[in-house]
Nucleic acid binder design. Structure first.
Lengths: 151, 151
DNA sequence: CCGCAAAACTTGACTGGTTCAAGAAAAGTG
DNA sequence: CACTTTTCTTGAACCAGTCAAGTTTTGCGG
């Protein structure tokens, strides 16, 4: 049983976006689905478990194409490499750990398009408001809270 | 007449943060003040108009130290290099141009700590909510709107 | 079922912002 | 003014991401 999107769905997604259906692309979509918020390096590794011969360049190209087509979403928190997640309709945001860079999804408290209307937009035609929460993840907090034996 | 922060103020800022007062540091602070949202390269150039002999490494170190001390704020919109601005108390955000990368300040519509409380924080100890608005700046919009003569 | 043009992938070199390391030069302290 | 620590200089290395040229596939039309 498949949890989220099935093989066939990915194929339809690609065709719907006028993108040819290829092995690398299906593998990348599957990898992104299985490893949300993974960076390019991890995705490359993940993809190679299915298609050992893919070039790193192919993965870059595919991720670029999928991002342009809106099938996946690219996020780049300061200090991290590019990370990817399957595009879901809801406008959710992310919490990023200051010490280890871990990322988790969050729905904004203000459900509907949070703060989309800026006070003074300086003439910019704004089409998206991206919210990044910064903090410390449970794991890192636990580590930092260890009995500190300063000599 | 000096608009914002004066020479002496910068020196006090540094001492207050337990940082030694050096020529490169004062020059970097001045450069950041004069060129808000400038990337490292531009700042290096700006600093060298005052202190021609600074190494690029010094600028990196200084920016790092000032950022750690909280005297300047580093922002890294996806697709841009690191950019810096003088730290101001207000919790303001940024609009970034999708085509040229230009950055401008914006006060969030929800004046006070916008969306700081996430619905489900996944156990993270959140201390900041960073909002990035994405759009197209006036200049780029004008260029894109030129009479398009497709043949 | 076969061949063709466009789109995708492979290979391999390269770029450029950022970082590392070791020594010289200042800043602050008593 | 000598001393310790921090900071700056020099120069090399790193590495995610990009470029370019050539080969392979895909999807389509005959």
């Amino acid at each position: 049983m498949d949890h989220h999107t099935t093989e066939a769905d990915f194929e339809l997604l690609l065709r719907g976006a006028d993108l040819r259906v290829t092995r690398p692309r299906l593998a990348v979509l599957r990898a992104v689905g299985r490893h949300p918020h993974a960076d390019t390096g991890s995705l490359l590794t993940a993809v190679r478990t299915e298609v050992p011969a893919v070039s790193h360049q192919a993965v870059y190209d595919v991720l670029g194409a999928l991002t342009d087509a809106g099938l996946v979403r690219r996020i780049q928190p300061a200090g991290s490499m590019a990370r990817y997640e399957l595009r879901v309709g809801d406008n959710h945001h992310h919490v990023v750990c200051r010490s280890c860079g871990a990322v988790a999804d969050v729905d904004c408290a203000v459900g509907h398009t949070p703060c989309l209307a800026a006070a003074d937009d300086h003439g910019f035609a704004i089409d998206e408001a991206e919210v990044t929460y910064w903090g410390v993840c449970p794991a890192c907090a636990a580590t930092a809270a260890l009995p500190d034996n300063r000599s």
